[in-house]
Amino acid sequence: MKEIRVGIAGLGRLGKVHAENLAFHIPGVRLTAACSIVSEELSFARDRLGAESVFSDYDEMLSKAELDAVVIVTSSPLHCEELKKALECGKHVFTEKPLGVNVEECKEAEKAVEAHPDRIFFLGFMRRFDPSYLYAKKKISEGAIGRPYLVKATGIDPESAVEGAIRFAPTSGGLYIDMASHDIDLMRWFLGSEAREVYALGANFKHPEFPEAGDVETGCALYQFRNGAIGMLHVGRTAAHGYHIETEIVGTEGSIRISPMPAKNLALLYDKRGVVTECVEGFPERFREAYRNEMQEFIRCVRSGEQPEVSVYDGTRATELSFATTKSFREKRPVTL
Rank of each mutant, 00 (worst) to 15 (best):
I140E: 04
S132E: 15
I120S: 02
I156C: 11
H116Q: 08
R128L: 11
V70F: 04
I72V: 11
I156D: 12
G164S: 13
L83Q: 12
P158F: 03
R147C: 05
R48K: 11
A86F: 01
F55K: 09
P148W: 08
L62G: 06
Y133N: 12
K137Y: 09
C89R: 15
P131V: 13
K137R: 15
A144K: 15
V151M: 10
V162R: 10
G143Q: 02
Y133M: 14
I156S: 09
F55E: 07
L62F: 02
R127Q: 15
E114F: 05
V113N: 03
Y133P: 08
T95N: 02
C80Q: 05
S141A: 15
G50R: 08
S141R: 15
D130M: 12
A86M: 00
T171L: 12
P98T: 00
A161K: 12
K91I: 00
V101L: 04
P77A: 01
P117I: 06
F168V: 08
P131R: 09
K91G: 00
V151H: 11
K97P: 05
F121L: 01
K138Y: 14
R127W: 14
L49N: 04
L99K: 04
V71Q: 00
K97V: 08
K91F: 11
K64I: 04
F55Q: 05
K91E: 01
A112M: 03
S43C: 04
P98N: 00
A144Y: 14
R46G: 06
F121D: 00
T154M: 11
V54C: 08
P77T: 01
A109Q: 05
E81M: 07
M61H: 07
I120E: 01
K138C: 05
Y133S: 13
F122C: 03
I145A: 05
A153Y: 12
F55Y: 15
A153K: 09
Y58E: 03
R48G: 00
E110M: 14
R48N: 06
I156P: 11
C80D: 08
F129C: 11
S53Q: 09
Y133G: 09
H116L: 06
K111M: 04
R127Y: 10
L62W: 08
E159G: 02
G146M: 01
A169D: 13
G146H: 01
K138M: 13
R147H: 07
H79R: 03
I145Q: 03
R46L: 07
V113E: 02
M126W: 13
K139F: 10
E60A: 14
K85M: 10
L87A: 02
F121H: 04
D157E: 15
Y58Q: 02
M61N: 03
V101Y: 06
F121Y: 10
A169T: 11
L150Y: 07
N102W: 10
D59Y: 06
L67K: 02
S160I: 07
L67S: 00
S63C: 06
P77N: 01
D68P: 05
A69L: 02
R127A: 11
S43K: 10
F121K: 00
S43Y: 01
P117A: 00
E88K: 12
E52S: 13
H92I: 01
S43N: 07
Y58G: 03
D130T: 08
L67W: 00
G143Y: 03
P148I: 07
A153L: 08
S160M: 09
F94K: 03
H92S: 01
G164F: 12
D57A: 06
S160W: 07
R119Y: 04
P158K: 08
L123R: 01
P158S: 09
K85E: 09
